[in-house]
Design a protein around this nucleic acid. Sequence first.
DNA 1: CTTTGATCATAT
DNA 2: ATATGATCAAAG
Length: 223
Amino acid sequence: MTHVPPPNSVEQLMQRAEALAGLSLADIAKELNIAVPKDLRRDKGWVGQLFEAALGAEAGSKPEQDFLHLGVELKSLPLNAAGLPLETTYVCVAPLANVTGLRWEDSLVYHKLQRVLWIPVEGERQIAIGARRVGMPILWQPTTRQQQQLKQDWEEIMELISLGKVSQISARHGEVLQLRPKAANSKAMTNSIAEDGSMQQTNPRGFYLKTQFTTQILRDYFG
DNA sequence: CTTTGATCATAT
DNA sequence: ATATGATCAAAG
């Protein structure tokens, strides 16, 4: 695979991202010598990893922003034919134990969403992976209102977790941020707080941005 | 058709 | 087991 060095500045990162706009995923993959899968069933993260390679993000599984030195997180955003998000956006894993005293400003959600480079891409299953086209990138920072919405949802969900009610939290909680399973399968287990305050085992969860929220981001940017 | 809960690949 | 990258697919 061709190697792209990390960008030296946000400007350079944006130039690279803008250069991808209008290209198909096959175009980008060819330049990087990366094979295009037939479908994403067994390669669910392929598009995101392709963008990481094309933009010079550090490949890794660290709980940090993709471009830590620039303070930027990279996210692909699959869109339908109407230009609206097809999927929720994964943010990070949710802490289910040892959460006493954890504040919003210290949370992983807060840090990851301080600045995000969104790369819109056609995502309908009827379009072959390689034929899907990339859109103009959006460098986004949450508005005061968006920060408030995220904080409120986060605090509500974290309170339930701290009270040992994680099993009662469904994806319907939260206006813009939701909690959902995030694991290899439903049998995977991690420590969480029980209602009596002791430790119990539950399926790991992650925070996701609802499509309504990312729709709003697109709307604010493109009109 | 949309959303919720489940799942896949890979690195550490 | 936990983190990254997410989409799949059953249910509503």
